[in-house]
């Protein structure tokens, strides 16, 4: 196993996935977590609900985590932090903006971009990252953005945290 090393270099914006928000998925999320009428299908919106802002953010997280599942981790022991917590834990977020509605049928593209990376002072092998994240329509219109700060495991000198 490689020794913990320097924190990751700052990266460019990286696409992590694309998702079409269907009426069925929008209403399923909304029924569980955000049952405001706009997010549920009905006569008031001609059966075309608008996604909960939290649905958009949670979908971003799903892609962010899955985009870390790679061959790199396979050589690590099963209890390595990079295996059991590939993206680590969040401290918090700032400036989460819901800029445009996401009606059923919208396809969004999700991005992340590291703005700052530094080694944790108190936890060897971990780094503290600040990253700007976003979702855009396929035409490029910005729909959602936020800045996330999180504590992430470092894997090795060769593996960057994109």
């Amino acid at each position: 196993m490689a020794a913990p090393s320097a924190p990751a270099p700052v990266a460019e914006a990286r696409e992590i996935g694309r998702l079409t928000f269907t009426a069925a998925e929008i209403t399923r999320f909304a029924a569980a977590f955000d049952p405001q009428p706009a997010h549920l299908a009905g006569p008031h919106n001609a059966g075309a609900p608008v996604a909960s802002g939290w649905h958009v953010v949670c979908a971003w997280m799903g892609f962010f985590v899955r985009s870390h599942e790679g061959a790199e981790a396979e050589a690590l022991p099963g209890d390595h932090p990079a295996v059991i917590s590939p993206v680590g834990v969040g401290f918090g977020l700032k400036d989460l903006k819901w800029l445009e509605p996401v009606p059923a049928g919208t396809r969004l593209v999700f991005f992340t971009q590291v703005e700052e990376a530094r080694a944790s002072g108190s936890r060897p092998g971990w780094q503290i990252l600040r990253r700007c994240n976003s979702a855009r329509t396929e035409a490029g219109q910005l729909v959602m953005s936020f800045t996330l700060s999180h504590l992430a495991p470092m894997v090795s000198a060769e593996i960057s945290e994109p």
Binding site: Q36, G53, G90, F91, K94, D95, K97, F146
Partner: peptide, 12 residues
């Protein structure tokens, strides 16, 4: 409610 423009900050 007319919706939310966003979250200023959130700490876990």
């Amino acid at each position: 409610s007319m919706g939310s423009p966003g979250i200023t900050e959130n700490s876990w």
